[in-house]
């Protein structure tokens, strides 16, 4: 059972989408369950892990704590929208080459957050990367190779 529904219009990964959506639906559920884009991960559902990070008008956003209706008229980019075709974005490539992904479950959230970070600070210091990614949890890597990968992507390595 769900409550009232309203039409939500989004630009999703560059393409217009219209979807009817109950008031109480959060973006994470919309993306995963209605739009079947499962790259955005559900790690805690409470804003305490960062696995579900998406870009809303270019800003990193916790999709588990954002009502879908409030994204109406905005541009939503998920992990699936960051790479061209079957290729990889520079951040994605750096994550692969530097072994920054182990189990991979936190990876989409980190890559979205890192992409936003590099958008704002194209040449970040290590400290800026550490601070900028301090809303994402990783249990596998100890963050070392994630930070290395983001710095490498910034330097075009």
């Amino acid at each position: 059972m769900s409550g009232l529904r309203a039409l939500v219009r989004l630009t999703l990964n560059g393409h217009p989408v219209e979807v009817s959506c109950p008031d109480e639906r959060v973006l994470l559920d919309l993306v995963r369950e209605e739009l079947h884009l499962t790259g955005t991960k559900r790690g805690c559902d409470l804003g305490t892990c960062g696995c579900c990070t998406v870009l809303l008008d270019g800003r990193p956003t916790l999709s588990c704590l954002t009502l879908a209706r409030l994204a109406d008229g905005r541009s939503l980019t998920t992990i699936e929208g960051l790479s061209p075709g079957t290729g990889l974005s520079p951040v994605q490539r750096a994550f692969v080459e530097h072994g920054a992904t182990q189990c991979g479950f936190c990876t989409p959230g980190f890559i979205v957050a890192a992409t936003a970070l590099l958008g704002e600070h194209p040449h970040p210091t290590r400290e800026e990367v550490v601070r900028g990614l301090s809303g994402n949890l990783c249990r596998c890597t100890g963050y070392a190779k994630i930070i290395e990968a983001v710095l490498a992507a910034a330097e075009g390595r």
Partner: peptide
């Protein structure tokens, strides 16, 4: 974890 239904107003 889904939210229980509520009515959302956006003044």
């Amino acid at each position: 974890m889904h939210l229980d239904p509520f009515e959302l107003h956006r003044p």
